[in-house]
Write a protein that binds this DNA or RNA. Sequence first.
DNA 1: CACACATCTTGACAGCGTCAAAATAAGACT
DNA 2: AGTCTTATTTTGACGCTGTCAAGATGTGTG
Lengths: 199, 199
Amino acid sequence: MTANKSSYHHGDLRSSLLEAAKAMLSESGIEGLSLRKLADRVGVSRTAPYHHFKDKNELLCAIAEEGFEHWHNNAEQIFSQNGLTTKQKYHQFFQGYIGYAAENPEMYDLMFGRTIWKQNSATNDLRDIAYPSFQRQVEMTKKWQEQGLMPVEEDTLRLAQVTWGTMHGIARLLIDGIYADRSHIDEMCTCAVNLFTRE
Amino acid sequence: MTANKSSYHHGDLRSSLLEAAKAMLSESGIEGLSLRKLADRVGVSRTAPYHHFKDKNELLCAIAEEGFEHWHNNAEQIFSQNGLTTKQKYHQFFQGYIGYAAENPEMYDLMFGRTIWKQNSATNDLRDIAYPSFQRQVEMTKKWQEQGLMPVEEDTLRLAQVTWGTMHGIARLLIDGIYADRSHIDEMCTCAVNLFTRE
DNA sequence: CACACATCTTGACAGCGTCAAAATAAGACT
DNA sequence: AGTCTTATTTTGACGCTGTCAAGATGTGTG
């Protein structure tokens, strides 16, 4: 169906746009990412991107998709590690989450920020990737309860919402530069894990 | 020095602008609040606001100031209540925080969102109001530790960051419409309070 | 070889924040 | 009083943004 590369006028505009857009995103954030500057950077006219993305929103969603994939692989990797107690793994997962947000603040802002999720502007493709990620959080919480790491008295869904909410909140405080800074990451994570886990 | 009211051309443009801006904010969010539409709404020309606010940013900061004041009074009121245990008060504080965010999502987004805090764009006036609010959070946490509500083993600052982070995170998940919705508020708050408090 | 289609460009429009310069009205001073 | 200074508001303009409509250009298929 679709040729692999170097066909048509530009070659593979769509992925070139995505790559450049990701770079611009991490350089200057969502606000600083304009379609016109993006087109300029790739070397095409202002409206060329519109033949590959219906909207600026659709472009942003496509970028976020890649972010979720990368994020998912990251979490998977941590959990497949051996020789760690459940609590150590959870600690590492927690720290990994905050670390990802701190190192990719603009991407995190895009993935979990209101630009996309506020007014239901998320693409179907993005939902298909993001929702399972949210669901996985609940499943993992259930396991943590069964393994005695987290209190079984609490409803699993609520517990998942609260623990993820904590990670999300700390991440946001960090990347929005309010009240907390990077040098506190490790201590904050340890503190949170202590509060959430028994033993 | 400055006349109280009904002097000059318009009367009291500054407060008229602020009031209209607050209305527009809650109607259509930060993104939907444009200086031009604001001026139009108040009945002045597009650049009139610039003699009362240097920037759009400065206007936003002025709005946020009012938000912090209202928010501060709200918290004060809860703590001055009698006939409640420490835990009940904390529960109510927690719920009040989330409730405020859920009922004033756009104002909360302005007060604690990246628009203002990201690139150090907060006004000095705003800082003077906001920073003590953050500080108060730490002091209250210290009291909660002393009263045996929260673990004394944890560093007060970290504990404050984590507990506030949790409130902030849940608030953001709610108002950004991701993963949680309003009907879960009470249960989430109870769950979080259970995790954070002893006894 | 021609036709259809995907792709890209040019032109245009409305909206935004903001600056400069001109117009207007109020208060202060002699 | 009247003049002057100063605060306030307006008009005009600039560059930026996202996006639509129409035209130009190249590619793959029949």
